[in-house]
Simulated scan of single mutants.
Amino acid sequence: MNLSRSVLGSVFCAFFVVSYFINKYVLSVLKFTYPTLFQGWQTFIGALLLLVSGKLGWIEISSFPRAAALAWLPGSVLFVGNIYAGSRALSRLPIPFFFTLHNASEVISLLILKVTHRERMSWMKLFSVNLLLASAINLPIYDPQFNAGGYIWALAHILCVGAYRVFQKKASHLSDLEQQYINYVFSVLLLAFAAHPTGDLFAALDFPFLMSYQFHSGCCASALLGFFLLLATVKLRSALPLEHCGAWVFLAKVLTSGLSPLVFKIEVNPETLCCILCSLGGEALSVYSEKA
């Protein structure tokens, strides 16, 4: 049993690391910064693969009433904001910096729960939240390659992620795959309509790597890896307790952050390194508090 769980966690970590690296490569190295097209392509492939896999019986997606899908639409709106703003932020920020800011979404979730449901938290959870918040606030102050646009998009990203977690926890009886299928279909429709007003559609026609092997292979790999990461995440959540899932997610972020300087150019000073380490420490403490 422990061996199967370790294999499952290792597969999740592998998909997590490679997926982020491919996305970062397309967004930052190839500089394909057109989120309506890039995210639209990923969600289209994700929806298609979920539909085909469900029809073939490889995964279980039960038929759900239209009312349930409509009730989930606010979550889909937050999901689109999450992936759109996250794509913008990731294209401008190093991966360890992106994770440091992303971790602060936990603060947003807890604030919403505190205000709406008056939930109490342990001193350990409170301390971890303060570490996450302090790391995210101080990172842009000491960033030697400060990018205002990257941090603004990261702020929008963490607001959407934090609100999405609360909505997912409190407002739906759909399974994870059913939620994601609705998210994908809604995202494809919304991003397709947004591609023209944002100018992404025509700007992409002048993209220098449009016909290159690197671009096409990167886009195909990102869509497939995103789908496999989704399946690995759902399987992990169904097979392991919440705190164990959190530990694997934490390990995946550590691996991705630690290996990213070997692949991408990153400029880090002692202050930003301290922010990164404090954020990881806050996340580790948050995961441990779930177990405690």
Rank of each mutant, 00 (worst) to 15 (best):
Leu70Ala: 10
Leu205Val: 10
Leu201Pro: 04
Gln39Leu: 05
Arg118Phe: 10
Leu27Cys: 09
Leu101Asn: 05
Ser257Phe: 03
Ala284Cys: 06
Ser260Thr: 09
Thr43His: 02
Leu201His: 10
Leu251Asp: 06
Val287Phe: 00
Val7Ser: 05
Leu242Ser: 12
Gln168Val: 06
Arg5Ser: 14
Glu178Arg: 02
Met121His: 09
Leu50Tyr: 05
Glu243Asn: 11
Leu231Ile: 15
Arg118Ser: 13
His216Arg: 10
Asp176Lys: 07
Phe228Asp: 13
Pro197Cys: 03
Val185Thr: 12
Ser260His: 03
Gly57Glu: 08
Tyr213Lys: 09
Leu262Asn: 10
Tyr184Asp: 14
Val115Phe: 13
Ser19Thr: 14
Gly81Tyr: 06
Ile112Gln: 12
Leu8Phe: 11
Lys55Asn: 02
Phe146Gly: 09
Leu255Phe: 15
Gly258Glu: 07
Tyr34Leu: 10
Ile108Leu: 04
Val26Cys: 00
Leu177Glu: 08
Arg118Lys: 15
Ala14Arg: 11
Ile83Glu: 04
Glu60Arg: 13
Ser257Asp: 09
Gly150Ala: 05
Ile112Thr: 12
Trp153Ser: 00
Ile61Pro: 03
Tyr84Trp: 12
Tyr164Ser: 04
Phe44Glu: 02
Ser63Asn: 11
Ser4Gly: 04
Lys253Tyr: 13
Val129Tyr: 01
Ser222Ile: 11
Lys170Arg: 14
Pro140Asn: 14
Phe250Met: 01
Gly226Val: 02
Gly246Pro: 06
Trp153Cys: 00
Ile266Cys: 02
Tyr181Arg: 08
Phe193Pro: 03
Trp153Thr: 01
Lys170Asn: 12
Tyr142Cys: 11
Leu236Gln: 14
Asn103Trp: 09
Leu73Cys: 07
Cys220Asp: 05
Thr116Asn: 03
Gly46Ile: 00
Ser217Asn: 01
Leu285His: 06
Val234Gly: 09
Leu133Trp: 13
Thr36Met: 07
Arg66Trp: 15
Ala136Lys: 13
Leu262Phe: 15
Ala154Cys: 08
Val18Asp: 07
Lys169Pro: 01
Ser187Gln: 10
Val26His: 00
Ser6Ala: 15
Pro74Ser: 00
Trp72Asp: 04
Ile137Leu: 15
Leu177Lys: 03
Cys160Gln: 07
Gly150Tyr: 01
Ala85Ile: 02
Trp153Arg: 01
Val18Lys: 03
Gly46Glu: 02
Ala67Thr: 14
Phe264Cys: 07
Ser122Glu: 11
Gly162Phe: 10
Ser122Tyr: 08
Ala204Lys: 14
Leu50Ile: 07
Thr36Val: 02
Gly57Met: 03
Pro94Ala: 03
Trp248Phe: 14
Met1Gly: 10
Ser128Leu: 04
Phe12Cys: 05
Ile108Ser: 02
Leu113Pro: 00
Trp41Ile: 06
Ser122Leu: 06
Glu283Leu: 12
Lys125His: 12
Tyr34Cys: 01
Cys160Ile: 07
Tyr142Thr: 13
Ser128Asp: 11
Leu205Cys: 06
Val263Arg: 01
Phe98Ile: 05
Ile137Tyr: 05
Phe21Arg: 11
Val263Ile: 15
Phe98His: 11
Leu93Arg: 04
Asn147Pro: 07
Leu201Trp: 15
Val18Asn: 06
Leu113Met: 13
Leu236Met: 15
Phe99Glu: 13
Leu259Pro: 01
Ala239Gly: 07
His216Ala: 09
Cys219Ser: 10
Ala163Gln: 02
Gly150Asn: 06
Gly282Asp: 00
Leu177Thr: 07
Trp58Ser: 06
Ile45Ser: 05
Leu110Phe: 09
Leu90Arg: 06
Ser257Tyr: 05
Ser286Trp: 06
